[in-house]
């Protein structure tokens, strides 16, 4: 049977705004499958985003959706979750949105360990504004604001999330379509802050400037650079140069923020009684 994505999408909203070959659509399909796997109730699920091409994703989803301001998704989401902890809260957005302008909210969301799932669509560029470099644009790559090549070092978003305290961190790519939903589903089921970084393609703004002949070329590159963590463990260091580890990169159990706050409420009510 063809997969029924339409039941999760608001009627009349397709076609979406993304360019031909933009990986955001592939990630959105993965997200829908993951939500199905976890049996999330639409009424009780909020999808929160910032600003950017990736951040337009919630508008298509038939849930409680919140398209906020650039970089602020994680902070809005924290408010939703704190005020209604029984809601499933998912965050989606781009690399610029999440770790440039939103970097502060991102790391603190990881640190608090609220039960939320953040899917970062990392296409290594600012797509919506026409291809300026982001904190994940490779050093030396071309962007509209790096006429002599990008001088900036990069963030590794997954490492950033682990360092900041997220308790489930996984990475995959838009090429590894079946892994996207599996990892997101695992993240949703995990009790605590989960970050799923999906390496994505932006043919319009990144591909064109960086000598990719086509979307398919970009997909093939994603296939080539990805090495599953388990395989990487058995590989010599020189073979891992330029590769990107995929799969579940980190997982630990740590007290979840809202559960801890519920105890505070009990304590305060007790003191009041």
């Amino acid at each position: 049977m063809a997969y029924d994505y339409e039941k999760s999408i608001r009627p009349g909203k397709l076609p979406h705004i993304w360019c031909p070959g933009c990986g955001h659509g592939i990630v959105m399909k993965g997200l829908i499958r993951a939500m199905d796997t976890c049996g999330l109730d639409k009424n009780n699920t909020a999808i929160v985003s910032g600003i950017g091409c990736a951040s337009r994703l919630p508008g298509y989803m038939d849930c409680c959706t919140l398209h906020t301001a650039h970089g602020r998704a994680a902070a809005f989401a924290a408010g939703v979750k704190m005020a209604k902890p029984e809601m499933n809260v998912l965050i989606v957005g781009g690399d610029g949105d999440g770790v440039a302008i939103g970097g502060n909210h991102f790391i603190h969301a990881c640190r608090r360990n609220m039960d939320m799932t953040y899917v970062v669509l990392n296409n290594n560029i600012y797509g919506m504004t026409g291809g300026q470099f982001s904190p994940t644009t490779p050093t030396g790559a071309n962007a509209s604001t790096t006429p002599y090549g990008n001088p900036d070092p990069t963030f590794d978003i997954s490492k950033l999330a682990i360092g900041a305290g997220a308790t489930f961190v996984a990475r995959t790519t838009a090429f590894h379509a079946t892994q996207i939903d599996k990892l997101i589903a695992e993240g949703i089921k995990h009790k605590g802050m989960s970050v799923i970084e999906v390496l994505d393609d932006c043919p319009t703004c990144f591909g064109r400037r960086n000598k990719f002949r086509s979307v398919v070329d970009m997909m093939k590159r994603l296939k080539e650079v990805a090495v599953p963590v388990q395989a990487a463990a058995k590989m010599p260091a020189e073979k891992l140069e330029g590769k990107i580890l995929t799969g579940v990169l980190f997982k630990e159990e740590r007290p979840e923020y809202c559960a801890e706050y519920a105890k505070i409420i009990e304590k305060a009510k007790g003191a009041n009684a």
Partner: peptide, 9 residues
């Protein structure tokens, strides 16, 4: 941001 998210609930 948080109070706006909270208010929406």
């Amino acid at each position: 941001a948080a109070i706006l998210g909270g208010s929406l609930t």
